[in-house]
Structure formats: C-alpha cells, structure tokens
Amino acid sequence: MQIDIITPDHTVFSGDVVSATFPGTKGSFQVLNNHAPLISTLERGQIKVRTNQDEKSWEVDGGVVEVLNNKITVLAEAILGK
C-alpha cells in the first residue's frame, strides 16, 4: 500500500509499505493492506512504517491520517528531531 507523510513545508516520506503504526489520539493503531477506510487525529508520538526492505520511524507532533483504498495520507503538524 502507498503512504505519503507530509508536513506544511515538505514531504517526509512517500512510498510503498507493508504496515504503518500511528500514535492516535485514542491510542496507537496499525494499518495493514486492505484496511477499512479511516480518518484519525494523531498526538505526539512515533509513526513507524515497515517496507519490504526495512523499518523507518519519525517522531510526529500531532496531525491527521486518512486511510482509503490502500493509500495512507498523513498530514503531520511537525516532524521532531530532524
């Protein structure tokens, strides 16, 4: 599935992933292929993605995530520590 992680000033990551984990406002959650449509707010925490080659993570300072038709769009307020 495709993921795009975007902040107001740049694209942090764009590519195919096997899974993604997010710090949701009501708790952490994971998205896998063919996940049901979803919109959620994010709180400060780790976004973790697993590709076929490796794992990547970013510290996010809030935002919104949308999952629809095997495409994940993350609008992050800020990526911390980068």
Rank of each mutant, 00 (worst) to 15 (best):
S28T: 15
F22M: 06
V65L: 10
R44H: 03
T21Q: 13
K71C: 12
Q30D: 15
D4S: 14
T51E: 06
T21H: 03
L38R: 07
I79M: 03
P23F: 09
D54I: 06
I5D: 00
T51H: 10
V18G: 01
G63R: 04
T11A: 11
P8T: 07
V17H: 11
E77L: 06
K56T: 04
E55D: 12
E77T: 12
D54T: 11
D61S: 10
S40F: 03
N33C: 07
T41V: 10
H10W: 04
T25Y: 08
V18Y: 05
Q46H: 07
G81F: 06
T51I: 10
T41K: 14
D4R: 13
E66Y: 05
I72K: 02
E43P: 00
E59K: 03
K71Y: 14
L38D: 03
D9Q: 13
K48H: 10
H35E: 03
N69I: 02
V64H: 05
L32P: 05
K71M: 12
R50A: 12
G62D: 09
S28W: 04
A78S: 14
Q30K: 14
Q2C: 01
T73D: 02
I3H: 08
S28R: 14
I39E: 03
N34A: 09
L42Y: 05
D4G: 09
N34V: 04
Q46A: 11
G62Y: 04
V65W: 01
S28Q: 15
F29C: 07
M1C: 05
D4T: 13
L32C: 08
W58P: 02
K26M: 15
D61E: 09
T41M: 14
V49F: 01
V12S: 08
D16Y: 02
S14W: 00
Q2V: 00
T51G: 08
T73G: 01
N52W: 02
S14E: 08
S14Y: 00
S19M: 11
L32D: 09
L42R: 06
Q2W: 01
A20M: 04
Q2P: 03
L75T: 06
G24N: 08
L38V: 09
G81C: 08
G45C: 09
V49P: 07
I6W: 02
V17A: 10
G63V: 04
R50P: 00
A76G: 09
V67D: 04
V60C: 05
F13Q: 03
I72T: 05
K26V: 13
I39V: 15
T41P: 03
P8Q: 09
E66W: 01
H10V: 07
A36N: 10
V60P: 01
D9Y: 11
G63W: 06
